[in-house]
Nucleic acid binder design. Sequence first.
DNA 1: TTGAAAGCGTTACCAA
DNA 2: TTGGTAACGCTTTCAA
Lengths: 333, 333
Amino acid sequence: MTSSGTGPRRVTIDDVAEAAGVSRQTVSRALNDKGEIGVSTKQRVLDAALALGYRPSRFARGLVRQDTFSVGLVIPDLLNPFFTEVAAAALDAARGRGWHVVVYDTGDRVEEERGTLEVIASQVDAVVGYLSLPEDEIARLTRGLPVVLIDRKHRSERFSSILIDGEAGVHAAIRHLTAAGHRHIGMLDHAERSEPSVRHEWFDAAMSACGLDSGSVARADQSVEGGERALQELLARHPDLTAVFTFNDIIAIGALRAARRLGRQVPRDLALIGFDGLRLGTLVEPQLTTVALDTRSLGALAVEQAARLLTGSGPLHSDQLTVGAELRVRESA
Amino acid sequence: MTSSGTGPRRVTIDDVAEAAGVSRQTVSRALNDKGEIGVSTKQRVLDAALALGYRPSRFARGLVRQDTFSVGLVIPDLLNPFFTEVAAAALDAARGRGWHVVVYDTGDRVEEERGTLEVIASQVDAVVGYLSLPEDEIARLTRGLPVVLIDRKHRSERFSSILIDGEAGVHAAIRHLTAAGHRHIGMLDHAERSEPSVRHEWFDAAMSACGLDSGSVARADQSVEGGERALQELLARHPDLTAVFTFNDIIAIGALRAARRLGRQVPRDLALIGFDGLRLGTLVEPQLTTVALDTRSLGALAVEQAARLLTGSGPLHSDQLTVGAELRVRESA
DNA sequence: TTGAAAGCGTTACCAA
DNA sequence: TTGGTAACGCTTTCAA
């Protein structure tokens, strides 16, 4: 009997040293391409390391030369193109700083988010992303880590937020519709939370600014199918609508499909304007008119702010942490 | 003069211990919610930690309790929906094992890939993904780390591969086309490497199996625009084509667009079959017929194999590392 | 060119 | 309930 349950012991630098008949600093030198080492010695060490299957411990290494940082990026659903764009931007910004990004997809489930935060604290130097837990719980789970919330306001000092200001963009969208003669404009809001979304508020404000009654609203799940169902429902209740603004592009694309199925030609019979400005919107037919967000800035700012929070180099202030949105007229309205 | 260039020293557990007037193990207990500690002591420690802004070193912690693993996932372009799906699957598989995934987007540039691998070795326990560097260079850069290549064969013992077998799927696609009466079938191959792709070989084999001359081929960049241009070029050279098989869905979607612009109605005037089976293919009009890959398995298998390689628990063997593909008939053919 | 010793910041194992 | 001491595996500094 030789096995004892603890599994094979890790191969350490000392094992390599012993095998090569040198000291461990010599091994370190050989492996890290420092000079000050004889060619044959180096080769012998390298061979020994290979033979033993030695892999340096990243923890031990990180402990002694404290020069690497990593952010935990928490997203609800990487397959949602919007989050993909934000994530890609965050990766890019992090690469620019030499930071590493550990990505967690919570699948839009709160328990997963909780589990992620629980485990994240010991893996990263800062947390960035879309979080839905209450602030005090986030604070508790993340211990002392800096946290940057995207598209969500914070109260606690410990947190920072990257906010979206779509007010001007949505106003432009509604003006665009009214200029085209639309008077009956509806909205497809999201269905996740109980209160109406901020985008809904912008919509209402824009409507009244244009002298229109607050439009009719249906709630849609954040998916193409959700948009499909919701438009169908909205039009059933309000057949007189000639234009619809949606919470986001995904929902708008669903609406596009539903409109086609219902025999409503877009934009002739029904004008559609989305929100987000996804690339995806240019791939559908007709191409989606949308209130476009700078998703790149969203992800990049989040990482940037995390970096500043961590290094103590003057964090950005609220007005620099807001991303605007502008109407991008394509074909659907 | 008080500043000396080295920046503020890190707050350690000893600082907290001193501030709270306890030993460092007591601090450790308080912070990790172990029992065996007085309530008031615990509170005092927690307060001190908060006041000092103490954050435990993840390296020191990882060093002592060696129970966390992470994979580096290297992809060429997260914004490409295909890679997004693979990445999402990898994240999911990793979560199941309690692994962390550090994601790197190389932007399809070799220097970035090189830079990534260079830095990755000290951050992760295994590397998984799409790599384009020569094997020996990968081996050198990744030191002793296990490496799992996706969609690429390996020679070295150090590596493992997740392979795609699309042969049967492509055969089915061509049979589907011939059954519909198509005789002049072309292909849009990718333009990246110099040799024809493996998918091209499957195409040729399928064509001759159906008794057809090896079709006409154009090369397309891996983008919607690339597909657009390539189809235009292909049809200019071979106006008699009635069907086209493409290297992947992205290119097919570009082809779809080009066909529309050229006044060729799909599938009536031109049948189109893609490869990959992206969700995106269901959002376009007409919905894309495609040879669908199980992208989830791709990502999941890669992580699974990395885990096995690392823990030494019998790595999967080649036949279990192959992902099949099947024809998914939708509307474009 | 090589080696010995001293950390890096934490948790685990005992003893008090 | 608390504290002392010994790891954890590596790199750095200083001597040889």
